[in-house]
Design a protein around this nucleic acid. Structure first.
Length: 336
DNA sequence: AAACGAATCTGGCACTCAGT
DNA sequence: ACTGAGTGCCAGATTCGTTT
């Protein structure tokens, strides 16, 4: 690693003042906004972003499958319930972190109640993933509408979520901005930062269409703040070409709307289209039936449907190696 | 020394893809 | 079609360093 040459400092316009903005991109020397999506058209774009993100979420696929299955045949024996119910059961087995504690907590609980809890847990994680995607779509669509940028790429080509090129005033050169959108800064774990920064920069360098200069940006869609560089605790700069943009800078730069204006717009859309948000359906009873059936087949519950035998539960949790543990074990080996 | 913001640690989880 | 490994996304808790 030490032999790897460090990336060349890009010569795009930088702020020269000796304050906390020193060396950050000088946006006064970039093409300005020309316009922005009208307030009338913004809701439409927001809705598009929400729907695009939903389409990407597997839960939407599940919801859609369930709906179509209901429409297609009413005997209720469709495969989709069996699959979702089995998935839920597998999740219950594989992600109950501590077999002993979990078995202890489950004593006397009804399995149908547990099924609902597990379903909510799964849904929560997907919610998080979903809002990340939502704001990526939204930023791209709005950026295109501003006419500020020479080009704005589609979503998710490589490391960068998207990139945009912008003209530098007075020198007939262009800057390519490679953006990785995160919900918040802690989305990337501390030890992962150097690697993430390096990969994003490698991605920019290897882009055949990269213009005169590149700038890499980690943008936080829902975390207030302006701009800065990433440094270690010892103040070591990780890269001079990678900036961290808080939502107060990110949204105006790409959309010509403030962070709060964007969020207010999203809220308005959700209020007038409640269906867009509630894409997690209530747990279908059939799914819970399948879950219960699996519990029964595995001998985990009594005749009332309650978990009555902690010993058996521990055996159940231990029988199959937990995938998360295997992952961690192999991860450790890789480091060595 | 308390308060604050940044850096770091920890570990759950989704998704893709290769091998079967 | 299934399964498991690999990879990366994500949030909560904790620690560190600076400021007031």
């Amino acid at each position: 690693m030490a032999t790897k040459q460090s990336k060349r400092r890009q010569a795009y316009p930088r702020i020269e003042s000796e304050d906390k903005f020193h060396e950050l991109l000088d946006d006064n020397k970039l093409a300005p906004h020309i316009m922005r999506i009208s307030t009338e058209k913004l809701p439409e774009t927001v809705l598009f972003a929400i729907q695009s993100a939903n389409k990407k979420s597997s839960r939407e696929m599940i919801a859609a499958s369930i709906k179509s299955a209901q429409a297609a045949n009413s005997n209720g024996d469709s495969d989709i319930y069996v699959k979702v119910g089995k998935d839920l059961f597998d999740y219950f087995r594989d992600y109950s972190s501590d077999p002993a504690s979990r078995a202890f907590q489950l004593r006397g609980r009804h399995c149908r109640e547990i099924a609902r809890e597990q379903f909510s847990l799964k849904a929560l994680q997907k919610e998080r993933m979903n809002s990340g995607w939502r704001y990526q779509y939204l930023a791209i669509e709005c950026a295109r509408a501003t006419q500020r940028f020479f080009s704005v790429s589609d979503l998710g080509l490589k490391e960068a979520d998207f990139n945009a090129t912008i003209s530098i005033l007075g020198v007939s050169k262009r800057l390519g901005i490679y953006v990785s959108v995160k919900n918040r800064e802690n989305t990337i774990g501390g030890p992962d930062w150097p690697k993430a920064i390096e990969k994003l920069e490698d991605d920019a360098i290897s882009d055949k269409n990269m213009p005169d200069y590149y700038l890499c940006v980690f943008a936080f869609a829902m975390q207030r703040g302006e701009r800065r560089f990433k440094r270690t605790r010892k103040k070591v700069l990780l890269s001079p070409n990678v900036e961290l943009w808080g939502s107060d800078y990110f949204w105006p730069f790409f959309t010509n709307y403030s962070y709060e204006e964007i969020m207010q717009a999203v809220l308005q859309v959700l209020i007038s289209n409640p269906a867009a948000e509630s894409i997690t359906p209530d747990v279908p009873a059939r799914v819970i039936d399948v879950f219960e059936q699996h519990c029964q087949d595995t001998g985990l519950i009594d005749s009332n449907g309650c978990f009555n035998d902690p010993l058996k539960l521990v055996e159940f949790f231990c029988r199959k190696p937990q995938s998360s543990r295997k992952r961690k074990a192999s991860a450790k080996q890789r480091v060595k």
